[in-house]
Amino acid sequence: MSRFKKSIFPNNRFLSLLSGQGVSYFGDSIASVALPILILTVTGSGFLMGLVGALEVAPLFIVGLPAGVWVDRRNLAVE
């Protein structure tokens, strides 16, 4: 029972992973806002800004949805 009360924060590998994921998430958030605004500033076209915004989420629908269905239907039972 005492082995479960240990904190994971002294683990350097975990802290490296946590900080790397945090920086990556922050960068993705900035890029998802800045890229369409940059396109609007450079081209002056709201259509292109919307197109870039739509193309940012297109891989999620093209790859993510079929991959999710494929993983759900696999038999991952370990015998």
Rank of each mutant, 00 (worst) to 15 (best):
L76A: 08
V78Q: 05
G44R: 07
L17K: 08
K6E: 14
E79Q: 13
E56I: 12
R73L: 03
V69C: 00
V52H: 02
Y25M: 11
N11V: 15
R3A: 12
A67V: 02
N75M: 01
G44K: 04
L55M: 14
E79K: 12
P66D: 00
I30N: 05
I30K: 06
S29I: 07
G64P: 01
A54C: 07
N75W: 03
R74W: 01
V52F: 04
K5D: 15
V23E: 06
L38V: 09
S7V: 04
I39H: 02
T43Q: 09
S45P: 06
V23D: 03
G64C: 04
G27Q: 07
V63K: 04
S16Y: 12
I30V: 15
L48A: 08
A77P: 00
L55R: 05
F14W: 13
A34N: 03
N75L: 01
D72W: 10
D72P: 00
I8R: 14
V57H: 04
W70I: 09
E56S: 10
G44V: 03
D28P: 00
V57N: 03
M1Y: 11
R73F: 02
M49T: 14
F9W: 14
K6M: 10
V69I: 05
L38T: 09
V23L: 15
L17H: 12
L35F: 07
G46F: 11
V69P: 00
